[in-house]
Design a protein around this nucleic acid. Structure first.
Lengths: 251, 251
DNA sequence: CGGCCGCTTGAATACCGTCAATTATAGTGG
DNA sequence: CCACTATAATTGACGGTATTCAAGCGGCCG
């Protein structure tokens, strides 16, 4: 069940089979299923437990008084919503399902047990939330400095790398590809652009051969080219096994 | 020395005099002074210790290949740079001084001692970094959804409340005011706007009586009016003493 | 097969950026 | 104390990028 999370955390550190068993167990205690566009929780809610995305896509978002909506993060399998939120009394944003979703609800107590029991897992969770923070900072930069095509290209680069890090890309045959179950409207909410302009931007990207997007599959003929137009630098994703020093324990 | 940090953390939880003494001590171990526009650290650096801003303003920022620059956070006295960064191998962004700065360098060991020694302080630090994350998300929303005047107004509201929470505002006489040692160019880098347009936006705000900005002092004649044009909702700052339940110890 | 949601297109316009020049302010040294 | 210089703020003109509005198209699901 916790396959994607384990795979992601292993980008940072190796995990013992004990660690993995613990994660598997935590992820299978209670699984909740949501339909597309349902909310996992809403702004103002009291946080109760940690949610782990097992399957499907979700997004964090904020809504302004007048209805404008900003997606502040796209969540894919292996992502944790609000690892630490139990410190705060109220959620300051919402998380909603983009596709039908299956989510593990992990009680905060279980999380505390895990982090107290294993320094490796504790650090791995820590790393995970630091990366989330770094992604948020990169989004600020993306929205503030990059223009339309760079912005969308950047998001595609990020998604590709994040999906690859949890084993959700196809690199067979010629070009790498992945499933993108997101509408152009949602892309607009994530990039701070209008739907119309997202559409035109996507078209330009297609014309320039940067992406092929048919149905729900995106193919990237030339990743380097895409990264170039995006001014993409992957360092903020910290996919560098920085925590290797921590696993003295087991092979 | 650690006055502002203590004051800020007390927005979350009450601290014992022991807690405060520990913080004071940590903040006075080693103090570094920087001139305006010097960097505390740069993207690519290896994080060595935690930096606590004692005096002056700083900013986190990222620079694109072609020189475009985005400020992703404004840092004021009491703010910690990279509480958790020692998990990561390389910094993915820079932090630079806006004004002359005095910064406490706190060794990671000291931080670990503190957090292991006091559950209250540990949670307070946690709260602090959750709030930083929340601010980053709000900035994403700000850049993505709000137009120029709303965006600048929002930043002013945020700064006012954050400064007030560390005791750096003046509410005497009639209207609240604070020192803003930031150039319009830096404001532009923070809001993703051009300098020229920041200038024009500020002028409109002045004409509409939303702010008075003379020299380095900003006065807010009508905070509610400013919040209204900003579509500002303070919940993301979590200034609600959420951690009061934690201080059973001392009066 | 019809309806709905998402995608696409065009035209008009608003917002904001760029360039370039001018004025104001602050910091520095004689 | 004042001239000098650098930095910051301001202004105008122009153009480009992105938004809005409105309408048409197309595929997928019931």
């Amino acid at each position: 069940m916790a396959f994607h999370l384990i795979r992601k955390l292993e980008q940072f550190t190796r995990l013992s089979s004990d660690d993995k068993r613990i994660l598997e167990q935590a992820a299978s205690l209670k699984v909740r299923r949501l339909g597309s566009r349902e909310d996992i929780f809403r702004e103002g809610d009291k946080p109760r437990h940690i949610n782990l995305i097992l399957d499907g896509w979700a997004c964090r978002y904020k809504v302004l008084e007048d209805g404008r909506r900003q997606i502040t993060a796209l969540l894919i399998p292996g992502d944790l919503c609000d690892v630490h939120m139990f410190i705060l009394t109220r959620m300051d944003h919402s998380v909603g399902a983009i596709t039908p979703l299956s989510v593990a609800e992990i009680p905060t107590d279980t999380i505390l047990e895990i982090t107290h029991g294993s320094a490796r897992l504790s650090r791995a969770f820590w790393w995970n939330s630091l990366v989330e923070e770094a992604i948020a900072r990169e989004w600020v930069t993306n929205l503030g400095q990059r223009e339309a095509i760079e912005r969308v290209a950047h998001l595609f680069c990020e998604l590709f790398l994040r999906l690859r890090s949890v084993g959700m890309t196809n690199s067979q045959a010629s070009c790498p590809s992945f499933e993108l179950p997101v509408t152009q409207e949602q892309l607009a909410d994530a990039t701070g652009m209008s739907t119309v302009h997202v559409n035109r931007t996507i078209q330009e990207m297609r014309e320039r051969g940067l992406i092929v997007w048919k149905g729900k599959t995106v193919t990237i003929p030339d990743l380097e080219a895409l990264q170039d137009v995006a001014l993409f630098n992957a360092n903020y994703l910290h996919l560098d096994h920085a925590g290797q020093a921590y696993d003295a324990n087991e092979p």
